[in-house]
Design a protein around this nucleic acid. Structure first.
Lengths: 237, 237
DNA sequence: TCAATAGATTGGCTTAGACCAATCTGGGGA
DNA sequence: TCCCCAGATTGGTCTAAGCCAATCTATTGA
């Protein structure tokens, strides 16, 4: 019931062989150069690159122009949605930090107004961050909050947790969250921010945070590196 | 704060242009052949294929050998985890069905025994299915249930819902589920079952279903087509 | 000793061409 | 009229080769 028989192009054989080699060699081991592999497998460099490209997309390998191709570290962060990203990661003993790319105060467009249940044109606060785990990029996140929260930047300097800042300084407690999780593919912008390759798989998560009364407190779009992150949810029926 | 400036290889320009064309042309419109596009853009077929490959991975296009390349239908199914897959999809008015690939009764290995909290070697029931939505493959799912449920195959013929069958025929109600969601890349086996291309992004979901007393009722591994599925979760804090 | 630089190395992108495999199409035969 | 098959079409895989861009290394020179 396991083998259903599929055609096996040459690059696929190379790919599975390289996967095996990578597992044996262990994290951060360097692979032979593409040109050397082409010779070893008696194939063209193009074919080698196709095999490597898929393994990179799967998170088995990573490569850097000028340096070489390496076995990736298995390094997934589980982040429960039950509490905030910051709290969860800390509870797991992970070194977590953020880079704030910008905070500004746009007006709500049609879509955001609908999500946050405000009138279009209402002042919002937008926080764009890159979330790091053990100093390495994990996610790119853009949060929208209703209202013009002018001191938010300074507050976040102290404690990276947006939820903690909202609760302690603005009296807004997130009591319920709705998450939508889907796949996405990294474009050049995502790839640059997250230090991954164009074409790598991402988890795209939209979150609506609500307070005790069911009023929207945040609407956030996040892209997480697919090779470093798992989403965890517990639901009672 | 939007344009951060990234190098733009030729294939990327072609890719974004094709994306725009695809949106304009609408679902199921056919694109020119790769050879024709190569001429139109004054580039090689290889470059065209790289652009198309990424759009296929993103779910914007799909292609079939011998037929051509087409604009994909936007056709995502939201499935809440709150209830069962079957119930949710029906509530959304989607035509859902399953193909049962096999039902057998293996013994629990180390890992399954741990998840289902039984002694290794305990008899289990394994149900392997392809879930269809509007007659098209959406997911490949392998469920493990504790105990040897010999009539399950016949019961599932009547009503596709595993949860309903467990409740009505075996008195096992799923009261709580824990889901882990991560990305994966389709290999040839997944690609064949789901009618997608090797390398397409998938959502890999592991679910542990528990009854009222917290005892495991199912442990399931599912792969969903990334271009057709969104995972939805609501959590109270 | 240390910094700057030139060259070698390695992955990134592109070309031009070839053959294979799946599909479609149109004509010929029953 | 209908079916089947040969040929054309289209995407799938692979080759051989070249140049570019990022990185590393070893030499040179202050």
């Amino acid at each position: 019931m396991t083998d259903r028989g599929f055609a096996a192009p040459k690059y696929y054989g190379v790919k599975e062989d390289l996967r095996r080699l990578a597992l044996e060699a262990g994290p951060e081991a360097s692979l032979p150069t593409e040109r050397a592999l082409a010779v070893r497998y008696g194939t063209s460099r193009t074919t080698i690159r196709q095999a490597i490209a898929e393994l990179v997309a799967e998170g088995v390998l990573h490569r850097t122009q000028g340096k070489g191709t390496f076995v990736a570290r298995e390094h997934r962060a589980y982040v429960r949605q039950r509490t905030s990203f910051t709290d969860d990661a800390r509870a797991q003993g992970l070194g977590i930090s953020s880079i704030i790319l910008g905070i500004d105060h746009p007006e709500a467009d049609e879509h955001l107004a609908g999500q946050l249940r405000v009138v279009p044109g209402t002042g919002l606060t937008r926080v764009e961050r890159v979330r790091l785990i053990d100093e390495e990029p994990l996610a790119h996140e853009v949060a929208h909050l209703p209202g013009t929260l002018t001191d938010l930047g300074r507050i976040l300097e102290q404690d990276g947790s947006l939820y903690a800042a909202l609760a302690s300084h603005y009296g807004r407690r997130v009591a319920e969250v709705e998450d939508t999780v889907e796949t996405a593919i990294a474009g050049p912008a995502d790839a640059g921010l997250l230090a991954i390759e164009t074409g790598s798989p991402l988890l795209l998560i939209h979150r609506l945070g609500l307070d005790e009364s069911g009023s929207p407190v945040e609407w956030t779009r996040s892209v997480f590196r697919g090779d470093r992150f798992r989403f965890f949810a517990r639901t009672y029926r």
